[in-house]
Amino acid sequence: MTKNTTRFDHVVLWVADPVAAAAFYEKAVGLETIRVAEFTEGKVAFPSIRVNEETILDLAPHSFAPRMKMLPGSADSAGHPVNHVCLSLPVDAFDALRARLEDHGVPVSDIDTGLSGARGNAARSFYFRDLDGNVFEARHYDD
């Protein structure tokens, strides 16, 4: 696994019942579940599904929506099938993307550190919207 190439890290899906959704993805689709027990014990906000060694699907309950404050209006995405798409980039591409977005007047969130993803905790991440309102997260991992 290479941490410094552009690729999908995770996609967050809104679901009515994260445990039932995890069971579907495990049983009907054949994917590995992650953190289901921790979710049911209240230790994590949502369970995940491993797509491959580098990509996961997070199964966010609709009740998680009020916590989505990275951009104004983000909580309004609850009920839509996808909350946001995360792109993992090399550090120089991460910095270049943020600069390009700012140069084009695209609002970006503050930088977060240590957010969990498919390959552990990211060094830095931020959020932005495309022209259609789709929310993207950009992140990079330490080398």
Rank of each mutant, 00 (worst) to 15 (best):
H10N: 04
V51C: 12
A96D: 04
D9L: 03
S116G: 13
L89P: 00
D143M: 00
A45D: 11
W14M: 04
F128H: 02
I56Q: 06
A138K: 05
T33L: 06
F46H: 04
G114M: 14
R98T: 03
D112F: 15
N52R: 11
L101M: 11
S77N: 14
V106E: 07
R119T: 04
I49G: 00
A16G: 14
V44Q: 05
E38M: 05
A20C: 07
A37D: 07
R67E: 10
A65L: 05
P66R: 05
A60W: 01
D142A: 10
T2H: 15
A20Y: 01
P66F: 08
D17A: 09
G117T: 04
V12T: 07
G30L: 09
A99W: 08
G114I: 12
F46G: 00
T33A: 09
K43H: 09
V135M: 15
E26M: 03
D110I: 15
L57A: 06
N83L: 14
N134P: 08
R129M: 12
E137K: 06
N52D: 15
S116P: 07
G114Y: 13
A23G: 08
A118T: 03
A118R: 03
P66Q: 08
N121R: 12
E26R: 08
K3H: 11
V51K: 02
P107F: 11
A99M: 11
S125I: 03
T40Y: 07
S63K: 02
N52E: 12
A118G: 13
G73M: 13
P61Q: 06
E137S: 04
A22T: 01
A22E: 01
